[in-house]
């Protein structure tokens, strides 16, 4: 009887461990370690919500740009520099790298441009 109970307890513990692992992997990386205690405590509620990269809504115009899991800061003009530092994966899911910034190479030869260098200003 004791042996049966011990086996039952071991199986229950093993199932719980597997279940939590699977749940964690569904949620993706969680800042702060992503362990069980962290998940259950509801910590990081002030952080941006965990986003599944590449998620799509069906309706045209109802899609939303969301930061990827590999980013540690919200993207935007004011923090682009920080983002660039931790975003050396370089590109999108199709393995395409980021484009060359203006001024580093000539504009594309698509017949739209003359020979002048683009000038940009943000006010």
């Amino acid at each position: 009887m004791k042996k049966t109970l011990a086996l039952l307890a071991a199986a229950t513990a093993l199932t719980a461990v597997i279940g939590v692992s699977a749940y964690s992997s569904l949620l993706g990386p969680v800042s702060g370690g992503g362990n069980l205690a962290h998940l259950l405590s509801g910590a990081d509620t002030e952080q941006a919500p965990v986003i599944l990269a590449g998620g799509h809504d069906d309706e045209r115009g109802n899609k939303r740009l969301r930061r990827g899991d590999d980013d540690h800061g919200r993207y935007g003009e004011h923090d682009d520099d920080d983002d660039d530092d931790d975003d050396d994966d370089g590109g999108n899911a199709r393995g395409q790298s980021n484009p060359a910034p203006a001024g580093t190479v000539a504009p594309p030869k698509n017949g739209l441009f003359g020979t002048g260098t683009p000038k940009v200003q943000v006010n």
């Binding site: 060359a100 001024g103 504009p107 594309p108």
Partner: peptide, 12 residues
Amino acid sequence: RAEIDGITGASV
């Protein structure tokens, strides 16, 4: 990306 090499800047 070849379409925008050399004509890309920061978000606004």
